[in-house]
């Protein structure tokens, strides 16, 4: 397949399929979870407005608890770097913004290419470091399953192909751009089906936890 036809495929049918899978998967997961039977808590709540705790936990758990802070902080920082860099690269780069505008009608100003490349570089480096950590830490290695590695790969490829396209590395720009968009398509398509769904679910799981514990009066 030539670069040009790969690009056309990635922007055309592949994207449509990926988007359909994304929507299907998201709806499936969310409906599936929300429609679960909730067990009733017969105890009297210590607090009535559990949702406040829920909201608080969504944010408070974004920082390690004091007890663990010393042990995990620097990996948390690396992880932060990755998430921030990733977000800047996705949301700050004009071509991506134009895609979002095309899908949702929303738009905002973009950042210079240099800033994007920097952010993406940081994200890529931290992602590599996180992989290294996962591979070298015996505990993490035991805990890791296919989903962890596959999701890492799915997240890493768009980053690296995007950087290659930006710096025009590789002998066919169209091919590299096509691969980049295709890897984005795959990311979209896979997102609801693996651990990457945490981009949505983290709010629900933390909120639920916060609400439950808040109601029970636990210090959170």
């Amino acid at each position: 397949m030539s670069g040009a036809s790969l690009l056309t495929f990635a922007r055309g049918p592949a994207f449509e399929v990926a988007l359909a899978m994304l929507i299907f998967g998201m709806v499936w997961r969310l409906v599936g979870i929300l429609a679960l039977r909730r067990s009733r808590d017969y105890s009297e709540g210590r607090k009535t407005a559990g949702w406040v705790s829920g909201l608080r936990v969504i944010f408070s758990r974004s920082w390690p608890q004091a007890e663990f802070r010393e042990r995990v902080l620097h990996w948390d920082i690396v992880s932060y770097l990755f998430h921030l860099g990733y977000a800047v690269a996705i949301l700050g780069y004009l071509p991506h913004i134009l895609l979002i505008r095309n899908l949702t009608g929303l738009r905002w100003p973009g950042l210079p290419g240099g800033a994007i490349a920097f952010a993406a570089g940081i994200a890529a480096a931290s992602l590599l470091a996180l992989l290294g950590h996962r591979l070298t830490s015996p505990v993490l290695r035991k805990l890791s399953n296919f989903d962890d590695y596959f999701s890492w790969f799915i997240a890493f490829v768009p980053l690296i192909t995007g950087l290659m396209a930006y710096y025009n590395i590789g002998d066919s720009y169209q091919m590299v751009l096509g691969l980049h968009i295709l890897s984005g398509d795959i990311l979209f398509a896979w997102l609801p089906f693996g651990k990457l769904m945490h981009v949505i679910l983290f709010a629900f799981s933390r909120g639920k936890t916060g609400a439950v514990y808040g109601r029970r009066g636990a210090a959170i």
């Binding site: 056309t8 922007r11 055309g12 049918p13 994207f15 449509e16 988007l19 071509p95 991506h96 134009l98 895609l99 095309n102 751009l177 968009i181």
Partner: peptide, 9 residues
Amino acid sequence: PLSVPTGHW
């Protein structure tokens, strides 16, 4: 724009 899907469907 190049980054926007061709959207034939």
